[in-house]
Design a protein around this nucleic acid. Structure first.
Lengths: 144, 144
DNA sequence: CAGAATCCTGCGAGATACTG
DNA sequence: CAGTATCTCGCAGGATTCTG
């Protein structure tokens, strides 16, 4: 998704990240890394789709679920998630090869927090949209 | 942050968003809109900073907290959050003008879900980073 | 079918400079 | 101090094409 480069953590420096709450800015900060995931709409959607489907999904099935995703972004997203150890990948070597994806145990633990966001969104986003409309109406006129 | 363009909601089409759970793909979906917010690292950081500080913060104070943010991105972020009704803005018209930001009630409700993510990150990101390292080690070699 | 490779583009976001 | 206004560059991400 994002960081592929060489800044990668050698197994040794895994624990370096301190606990300062503000150090999102620090590329080493775990929270920042997480936001790079969550930040990508497709990652969230993929995890949520897999969570909704108790079991596995094939590439194309996922693509169907996640309307609007390009196969490039889907592949990219899935590889990132696999790399993170959040999703598992199983290849079935048949004539038309089939690849199945599923959440790992780790991935499953992420579902709850994500759902938390989704719930919040469903409850409050209408209000937010209303706020936006009001704000824009009062704003757009006088150049601010 | 993201959508300023012309797709903007006329006051009328505010309530259109249905309740389908998977419709992240649908641009009209509230959850999608939320992810555009959460997706931006600065938004999350701003909300969390304001949450941490019981009270108000001035522009420069926020800038100091959120290391790495440019004043441009900060201003942009804050305006977006204000537009969403998540943060409130109070101007004190003194000789050196002072502007204070604080979470609104709505904004406060978002803190918990966000904290959920942060907690997850602190607990599991080390594992994720480990996974990445392993994955890359096994992968980088054989072109895959 | 599941992906890798290539090309091309928009806008996200930094640096700099100017106002009230 | 608290912004707004430009200009510019990088790369995220779409469309298209090719393979095993």
């Amino acid at each position: 998704m994002s960081g592929e480069e060489g800044t990668l953590a050698a197994p040794g420096d895994v624990g370096v990240t301190a606990s300062r709450q503000g150090d999102l800015f620090d590329p080493l900060c775990p929270t920042r890394h997480l936001l790079d995931r969550v930040g990508s709409r497709w990652s969230v959607m993929a995890v949520l789709s897999l969570a909704a489907t108790e079991g596995e999904l094939r590439f194309t099935e996922l693509k169907r679920e996640m309307t609007g995703v390009s196969q490039k972004m889907l592949a990219q997203t899935l590889r990132a998630l696999e790399r993170d150890g959040l999703v598992g990948r199983r290849v079935e070597a048949s004539k038309p090869p089939r690849v199945y994806y599923r959440l790992t145990g780790l991935g499953t633990t992420l579902v709850a927090p994500l759902e938390g966001l989704r719930v919040w969104a469903e409850r409050y986003m209408p209000v937010v949209q209303q706020n936006c409309a009001v704000f824009d109406a009062a704003d757009g006129l006088h150049t601010r």
